[in-house]
Amino acid sequence: MSVSVTLPRMMEIGGGAIARVPDMVRNLNASRVLLITDKTMVQFGYADKVQALLTQADIESRVYADTIPEPTASSVNEAVQIAKDGGFDCLVALGGGSAIDSAKAISILARFGGVMRDYKVPRIVNEEGLPIIAIPTTAGTGSEVTKFTVITDDATDEKMLCVGLGFSPTAAIVDYELTMTLPARITADTGIDALTHAIEAYVSRKASPFSDFNALEAMRLIAPNLRKVYHTGSDTNARESMMRGATLAGIAFSNASVALVHGMSRPIGAFFHVPHGLSNAMLLPSITAFSIEEAPERYAKCAIAMGLATESDPIDVANTRLVEELDAINQELNVPTLAEFGVSQDEFESVLETMIEQALASGSPSNNPRIPTPDEMKSLYRHLWS
């Protein structure tokens, strides 16, 4: 049986890789670059650094720094108009998953028009938008190598999952040095997001030997280094391992799909503005425990890859250690409950049915080893208060 694999056309990986931006632009036969980023990247000087590299290479560029966390359909409109009016032929996306996801939406809308809802699943978007060079500054989302973007509908608060080759970056620059200044909270949230990608890709019903290889290697890199980068952000070796692990996890889930954690996580972010990685972390232990009975061998392999068990350990022992470790990570990295995050339980209950509907509509829960009923999803959501 064959499997379809999607990857960027070009990738540059390693410390200092950002210096290759001009070469990648030239390789795309582009000459006018719109740099899609956020104000934090401007404050840290990273946007200026990229623009200086382009200027030195006689490549015209303009910075758009108004992307927002958890991008919405309306938040990308200004940049879409700038891209169209300015005749830009390449987008460079610099930042975390939100900046890269925004660039993916801008790429398609600038070339083909319409509104973001036109491009949500079940539509598969294989049209080729403006080429994107993705430069992640967090070790987490893997968006630099995926064919997905998530954009919130302002009118309904639905986090719309959009899928297809059209959303896959043309090129990616993976430079761990860009993560050295990340604060501990963002380091934790994005790191757990990457770990979730790897685990869900491995247990997904759409997994293949190709995605399995990348998912297991991602877990081997992330598991021993997640706590290190949280406590000691200056640990160069740990930062590099996390960055490589996050990219491999992105490759894994882009080619196997995520599952129930992500399906249930998106509505939490949409309704209560919980950062994506943090809402994944809130759900990961309980959904793993719920799902294990349908794929015990697969989850045991995750425990082995993470260094929690050996091949000689019984499967149930390995799986117990896995759930215990996921709980322990949340404790050590100070992942709050939804109540501790500040969400009112009455408000939560008022949108619970809608959250379940949106999670199911995304299609991600159907990739899970154990496919939940709506009542089971309700119970898993309510577990967030424990």
Rank of each mutant, 00 (worst) to 15 (best):
255 N>W: 09
255 N>S: 09
256 A>T: 08
256 A>N: 08
257 S>E: 01
257 S>Q: 02
258 V>A: 11
258 V>R: 07
259 A>V: 00
262 H>Q: 06
262 H>P: 08
262 H>N: 01
262 H>F: 05
264 M>N: 03
267 P>F: 03
267 P>I: 00
269 G>R: 10
270 A>R: 01
270 A>L: 02
272 F>S: 04
272 F>L: 05
273 H>R: 13
276 H>Q: 09
276 H>L: 04
277 G>Y: 08
279 S>F: 00
279 S>I: 00
280 N>F: 03
281 A>Y: 10
285 P>A: 02
286 S>M: 12
287 I>D: 08
289 A>E: 13
289 A>Y: 00
289 A>K: 13
290 F>K: 03
290 F>L: 04
292 I>Y: 11
292 I>P: 11
293 E>K: 15
293 E>L: 10
294 E>K: 15
295 A>C: 10
297 E>T: 11
299 Y>D: 10
300 A>S: 13
301 K>A: 13
301 K>L: 04
301 K>M: 07
304 I>P: 06
308 L>R: 05
308 L>F: 01
310 T>H: 08
313 D>H: 02
313 D>W: 00
313 D>N: 01
313 D>M: 00
313 D>Y: 00
316 D>Y: 07
317 V>T: 14
318 A>Q: 05
319 N>C: 10
320 T>W: 00
322 L>P: 05
323 V>N: 11
324 E>D: 15
324 E>W: 02
326 L>H: 07
326 L>Q: 12
326 L>I: 10
328 A>N: 15
332 E>N: 11
332 E>C: 11
336 P>H: 09
337 T>Y: 03
337 T>A: 03
338 L>W: 07
338 L>P: 03
340 E>P: 03
341 F>V: 06
341 F>D: 05
342 G>W: 13
343 V>K: 00
343 V>W: 01
343 V>F: 00
344 S>C: 09
346 D>H: 12
350 S>P: 11
352 L>M: 14
353 E>H: 12
353 E>C: 03
354 T>L: 15
354 T>C: 02
355 M>K: 12
355 M>Q: 11
357 E>P: 01
361 A>E: 12
365 P>E: 09
365 P>N: 10
366 S>Q: 15
366 S>A: 15
369 P>Q: 08
369 P>K: 05
